[in-house]
């Protein structure tokens, strides 16, 4: 068992345990803070897979953006307006069916896909340059469309805020 194995199991454990608490805890704030650990663990696994750019972007977008927005929303409604937000289990039967079906799809994909096997050694070079090349050449249309989508969301948010 070398260093990378230990680190992998550490990050996997962090991700799984915190994800479990995100779902089970009754307090929304605790869920949100556990989500921080989940994102962190996933970022760590990305790093171990050699996807350094993806890992950093994961932290910036999810922790720096989405999680903080989430916390803002919960805190402003919870403490200032004095509404108790609690999570609970509702609609158990449909949820079980949906989750079962989705995990069935995922497992069947996992089993049936022919995984491309690359060497076990970690890719040393950074992936950033290659990613940039791909985004600007091969996937330029999708890239631009995503940009337009974000712009539309931004304008929409500004319009709603002005009312």
């Amino acid at each position: 068992m070398n260093l990378y194995n230990i680190i992998f199991y550490l990050f996997a454990a962090i991700t799984l345990v915190s994800a479990f608490f995100v779902v089970t805890t009754r307090n929304v704030i605790y869920s949100a803070f556990n989500l921080l650990l989940t994102f962190f663990g996933v970022a760590g696994i990305y790093v171990l897979l050699g996807a350094d750019f993806l890992a950093v972007v994961q932290i910036i977008v999810y922790v720096g953006g989405i999680l903080i927005l989430l916390l803002f929303g919960v805190m402003l409604t919870n403490k200032i307006v004095n509404v108790q937000i609690r999570t609970g289990a509702t609609q158990i039967l449909p949820a079980t069916i949906a989750v079962g079906a989705f995990s069935g799809i995922l497992i069947s994909l996992l089993v049936n896909t022919e995984w491309k096997k690359v060497g076990t050694a970690l890719p040393g070079a950074s992936t950033t340059a290659n990613l940039g090349m791909l985004m600007m050449n091969e996937y330029i249309l999708i890239f631009e469309l995503l940009g337009i989508l974000l712009l539309v969301a931004l304008i929409g948010a500004a319009t709603i805020a002005r009312k």
Partner: peptide, 23 residues
């Protein structure tokens, strides 16, 4: 290789911790 981007990324942990302390 992503030094500066990484630093900007981990600084968001500070924001979360400030929200945590305040709440």
């Amino acid at each position: 290789d992503l030094g500066i981007v990484y630093i900007l990324g981990v600084s968001s942990f500070g924001v979360v911790s400030i929200l945590m302390a305040g709440w």
